[in-house]
């Protein structure tokens, strides 16, 4: 018993200890918000046809998720139980409004592309889910880490889906961001030139852009495959229903 007490006393001191690390790692893999908890699928699948908007969306959600957890946790003892949902919604809506205007000012093209999906971060279930499940019962710093971790877990899937869809659908990466990597396509400008007549590039002569990947439905297939791989590797995650 004495030992247990000791470890608890020690744990209080490090700012980024083992538990905090767990809070980041867990949602990235075994407790991923999208593939395991099925939260927050709503607002963002439509933006993943290109990597750049997915990345922006991911950063926005990490920001909103982290800071809404922090603020809610700071206020947790003053919020009455009955109106907590409204208070949480107002905190989230405030942060999303900030994100909205920052993007409008500094990244107008991507703001146009994301259109209503920025506003829809408000109703993104991970944000509210984390507030309800974690921030209302934990200290500010840990809630902040937890929010960031869940935002990252969400963003990781978003970017992964974006990469797959953009490479196979358009043959590019980061189109529209200014980096514009041309990966594979039928001309000299691409890294892999499918029209090449000599060298190793001739191996890819069969390649053609897959238009299915540009369609919204492709996001569902890519996520289904991620879920499949994840659950095949870790049978504990399989749900029976």
């Amino acid at each position: 018993m004495a030992e247990v007490k000791d470890t608890k006393a020690v744990e209080k001191t490090p700012l980024f200890g083992k538990e905090e690390k767990q809070l980041i790692y867990d949602p990235l893999f075994d407790n991923n918000p999208i593939t395991i908890q099925v939260l927050g699928v709503c607002s963002a699948l439509a933006v993943t046809s290109l990597v750049y908007p997915s990345l922006v969306m991911a950063v926005a959600v990490v920001f909103v998720c982290g800071f809404s957890s922090l603020f809610t946790s700071l206020l947790r003892n003053t919020i009455p139980k009955q109106v907590r949902l409204i208070v949480q919604l107002v905190i989230i809506a405030l942060l999303v409004t900030v994100v909205n205007f920052v993007l409008k000012a500094f990244a107008y093209p991507v703001y146009k592309q994301l259109s209503v999906y920025i506003g829809l971060i408000i109703t993104n279930c991970i944000v509210m889910g984390r507030l309800e499940a974690f921030a209302m019962a934990n200290k500010p710093w840990r809630s902040f880490i937890d929010g960031i971790g869940n935002g990252l877990g969400y963003g990781a899937i978003l970017v992964l889906v974006g990469v797959v869809r953009e490479i196979f659908g358009k043959g590019t990466l980061f189109a529209g961001s200014g980096i514009d990597m041309m990966m594979i396509g039928p001309s000299e400008d691409y890294w892999i030139n499918t029209m090449a007549t000599e060298g190793w590039q001739t191996m890819f002569g069969w390649y053609a852009n897959n238009n299915l990947m540009v369609m919204p439905a492709a996001a569902m297939f890519v996520i289904a495959i991620v879920i499949w791989i994840q659950r095949a590797r870790n049978p504990k995650l399989v749900d029976i229903s």
């Binding site: 593939t35 099925v38 569902m220 289904a224 879920i227 791989i229 659950r231 399989v238 749900d239 029976i240």
Partner: peptide, 10 residues
Amino acid sequence: PALRGLGMAF
């Protein structure tokens, strides 16, 4: 088994 439930729904 790994696709049951959620995977199939997607």
